[in-house]
Design a binder for these strands. Sequence first.
DNA 1: CATGAATGAGGGTTCATTCAT
DNA 2: CATGAATGAACCCTCATTCAT
Lengths: 199, 199, 199, 199
Amino acid sequence: MEVADKKVALFEAVIALIEDGVDINSLKVSDITNRAGIGKGTAYEYFRSKEEIIIQALFYDVGRRIEKIRRLLRQNMNTRDRIFTIFQWMETDARQKSSFTQLFQMATGSFEFSNSLKEKMDSQEGYCREINEILMAFVEAGVKEGVFRPELAPALQRTALVSQFMSFVLYFHQEEISESVSVEQMKEFLYGNIMKMLG
Amino acid sequence: MEVADKKVALFEAVIALIEDGVDINSLKVSDITNRAGIGKGTAYEYFRSKEEIIIQALFYDVGRRIEKIRRLLRQNMNTRDRIFTIFQWMETDARQKSSFTQLFQMATGSFEFSNSLKEKMDSQEGYCREINEILMAFVEAGVKEGVFRPELAPALQRTALVSQFMSFVLYFHQEEISESVSVEQMKEFLYGNIMKMLG
Amino acid sequence: MEVADKKVALFEAVIALIEDGVDINSLKVSDITNRAGIGKGTAYEYFRSKEEIIIQALFYDVGRRIEKIRRLLRQNMNTRDRIFTIFQWMETDARQKSSFTQLFQMATGSFEFSNSLKEKMDSQEGYCREINEILMAFVEAGVKEGVFRPELAPALQRTALVSQFMSFVLYFHQEEISESVSVEQMKEFLYGNIMKMLG
Amino acid sequence: MEVADKKVALFEAVIALIEDGVDINSLKVSDITNRAGIGKGTAYEYFRSKEEIIIQALFYDVGRRIEKIRRLLRQNMNTRDRIFTIFQWMETDARQKSSFTQLFQMATGSFEFSNSLKEKMDSQEGYCREINEILMAFVEAGVKEGVFRPELAPALQRTALVSQFMSFVLYFHQEEISESVSVEQMKEFLYGNIMKMLG
DNA sequence: CATGAATGAGGGTTCATTCAT
DNA sequence: CATGAATGAACCCTCATTCAT
């Protein structure tokens, strides 16, 4: 447990730094360990390289957040509530410079980080797959509930869903629109869009 | 003009390297100048730092592509044709690791590059505004044409539009779906979504 | 006694590692203590530094081996038998990467180990003196026995002796010759050389 | 040629440091470049690693010295003169902590330096072979001249020769003997030994 | 102007040593 | 006492930037 504690302390430090706006590519080991309140050398008792720390930190964070949304969605509710639950979750957990954004960038392929760690990047798909599973379950439940059209290919339904969730992320990054449209209005608009596309 | 030539040569080199899959954060000055076929020191005759080169290169590329889509959209056509024109443009110009993707990442905020250059990042909004203008003109034309509902706030119409364009980018990054759904099917699906949301 | 046991355990570990082919300059404290089966910190209860451990280990090993050859040579025998006894001893005790080789390298001066420990290096001459005593006693006995010429300065006689013993060490390091000449042939050749030089 | 100059400057710096008594294993890149009068980074324009610098420096030095002894031995002379020529050469070129000593230690196998460069160590045998060739030519010439017994296997003749040359090196490292026996006396003694063994 | 050789600041990593348990 | 987790000094190497030619 001690070991896990130290690892987690480093993870939290990485996440905190990212949320503070430090670019992932300019994170220094000393920054991380200082933030974690431990010595520079100590990090190497638990990880073999800086990259290992950062990547595992991202995975740790994303995993934690995915677990959370999973738990939230397990509660019985209808599709509308589920969609708003996801909006709520994104608002608190997947906003800004969080590791969710990092993940998204991984998905678009530009997060290379280092040539030697592409292998690890593949296991990242593990999380993509997890997210995908959540989305597919979401789609399935919507169909079962009778609010999503069953004849539409699930992959396309998922695409439509994701498009509105991405819009929600973008909303937070566009000062201009977030000033003229309230969060609640935006949620209703996006929800309406989903229903128009899939209903 | 000589000067502009050298600058452009450097820009093209940066763009070529990015399209070759080199991560933007691991671009080296020597790589860029070698690719541009000029001496390493020469780059510093025209730019004050590596970051200046790269950022201006991205802007150069994005600007050129925006100019292209502007020109394409100036041709008289209906909304459907305009949407497919944009799809077409994205397919050839904004695919992969292009500067469009980079721009998108700038938009989501994680492309910091360096703490000392945040100021330059702000001028990036210049391009965002340009893109925004294009989109707003697009919306306006759709309304004028009678295919987009006029009562919907333009900012929301734009959001809906962008969501489907983003989905198109994502489509190219998801092997799983790009294998089961053809590009044409996806275009039709996304077009349909736009019409459902805005029509 | 406990204390001595721990020290000896560390010495044996150092010697074992050297005989395993680990370079003396890349020995790590953790390697040594792991091999000795004790905790890393414990080593510092008995020694002030890594270098102290290693140097003392070498001395311990060399001292033990010298004691052995002393004992062997105390048995009454003639010069020829004594020479072959030394060959035999070298074959089993002073071969390979043993501390004898290390000692030899100390003698040729290149084993510095660290600038701060030159003082300790001087005490190393203690062992040189011991070896020297053995050799001088050897020479004296040879003269007394009447097989070594008495008119030759003992220091020179010793030089001649050592030259053939060194050749024996070298023999083990030259695959080319150790394949074409058997150990016994080599011993006879070197013995003959000694007699030619000193007889 | 410029390039070669820089390389040679680094080689000379390494050699000078070694002759100053700095241990080969504690040479720092900054020491070397400071001594060579160039910037630290510059070394990496010509070599890929510190080890490459040091190893090539040793080879450079040994090669140069071997070339010198070759040239000296090419002059027509009898065996006695050749032996004294080698003594002379050792006195000026192969004394002390020179790269010759380093080479000798490589030969006895304890110069590991680094695990990743064992391959290069094999090419070191190139020099061993060169030295061997010189010695074998020496033996052959002695036999042809009629001063070395032809019936003795060349490998054994070489062993005998080397034993006395090694004794000469040792002589310089033993204050005790170098104080009581003059260099010339030692040379005559060792020469006499060679003739007794091989004549 | 154009160059690329030279530079050195900066950062990742190792490992001897310490000290709280 | 014994331990091994924690530490940070030390060092190799990279690469953006400079400047003499």
